[in-house]
């Protein structure tokens, strides 16, 4: 039970407000709560816009190699949608070659919608690899 609701019930028990007033107050509190909880959720989980790949590596001469790539997630989505243009003949050929190489994957089963879902859930993916000389981070922001 929320604190506000408890206070309303206490006021009702003490006779400070009538049952109708208490009902109106409780309804008002209930209307207010989902809105505020939604607001907090939206603020704490802003939708990421970019996929970042950051690699730092010490080269042999004491210098530092660095790669920093920022790709908009929208670009990944656009790229994924391009897969729908691949002609069926090419997919059949790719399937055959994959099968020959020992990867019996049917690319026909891979739908663009599934790939889009994959991109939608990328925001929860963080890859963090730390080595003595190298660190790699893949994340969304």
């Amino acid at each position: 039970m929320s604190e506000q609701r408890r206070q309303i019930l206490e006021m009702l028990a003490e006779g400070k407000i009538t049952a109708d007033e208490a009902e109106r107050l409780i309804n008002a509190v209930e209307r207010e709560q989902p809105e505020s909880s939604l607001g907090i959720g939206a603020r704490s989980k802003a939708k990421p816009k970019y996929l970042r790949v950051v690699l730092n590596s010490a080269d042999g001469s004491g210098g530092q190699d660095r790669i920093n790539v920022q790709v908009p997630l929208q670009l990944l989505r656009a790229g994924v949608r391009l897969t729908s243009l691949i002609p069926p003949r090419a997919i059949t050929l790719a399937n055959e070659e994959l099968d020959k190489s020992g990867f019996p994957i049917d690319l026909n089963e891979l739908k663009p919608q599934q790939l889009e879902e994959l991109i939608d859930h990328l925001d929860e993916v963080i890859v963090d690899i730390d080595d003595a000389d190298t660190s790699i981070r893949v994340f969304c922001e």
């Binding site: 970019y50 080269d59 530092q64 660095r66 790539v69 920022q70 908009p72 929208q74 656009a78 949608r81």
Partner: peptide, 20 residues
């Protein structure tokens, strides 16, 4: 498809550094 890719390009950034 190409139009979508073009529209989505702004914000892309590649930075490569090797020594100097």
């Amino acid at each position: 498809g190409i139009g979508r890719v073009l529209w989505a390009l702004p914000g892309t950034r590649f930075e490569f550094e090797e020594g100097r």
